[in-house]
Amino acid sequence: MSLRERQQQLLDYMMGRNSEIDGHIRDHGAISADTRLNIYRNAYQVRFWETIDTDHPILGTYLGDDLFNQMVHDYIDAYPSTFRSLRNFADRLPQFLTEDETLKAYPHVAELARFERELIAAFDAADAQQAERQQLIDLDPEKWPILKLEFHPSVRVFSTPYNVVDIWQHIKAERTPPEPVQQDETWLLWRNRERLTEFVSVDSFELTMYRSFADGHNLEQVAELLLEISHSDPSSHMVNTLFSWLDRGWITRLDAGLQLVKQ
């Protein structure tokens, strides 16, 4: 019997699959081999349950204990961990929720899980310095048209067809959540200067401006795009938006071509 075979047998047992491990475990003292093996099988379930419970507190409250426990049980079966860290174990939960026979009938539940995953991703995204508004004030006006932006690694877009952020906020505040409503919403999440995760709703102007800068366009190109969609001079709105981004810590670097903007 090889080491690999024995390891496969024990893992199968822990995962609730058919296994012949019990014939290879010593049965001595007051506890049977079965009891001994069950300690590992139970721990397997509990460990992953705790991970999802920690990562998805709002989803857990929203579903209630019975539905949440069933979801966790089925997720552990469907998507066993292939990660070194438990931090990633529930990364595929939103996907699972679109496939689960019971919960796929409530597509906003997967969206709620996806929002919580994005909060986690923003929480431990890479560190980077955050530019200050003074850097934009100090920028030579002639350089403004070629200004490009580099965003903080924690900044991410959450677009959803449901009011799940509102639901999330109500549960967080221990209030009764609203009924799910199908409505397109876009939020931006980021980690602020105190390293706390924040999110804000963005309109189509701000989203277009963000995506255009994130795609590497300069301010002149972004302005032209915004002029097309807003049919009015976007300059003033753009400047105010840029300062709000700087204040929130969204921007790590202002790039104005050969003129490096001093920190």
Binding site: R4, Q8, L11, M14, A43, Y44, S81, R84
Partner: peptide
């Protein structure tokens, strides 16, 4: 050992 065939049991076996 903690897992096999790419599956991690996150336990110290």
């Amino acid at each position: 050992w903690t897992g096999l065939n790419g599956i991690n049991a996150h336990d110290l076996l």
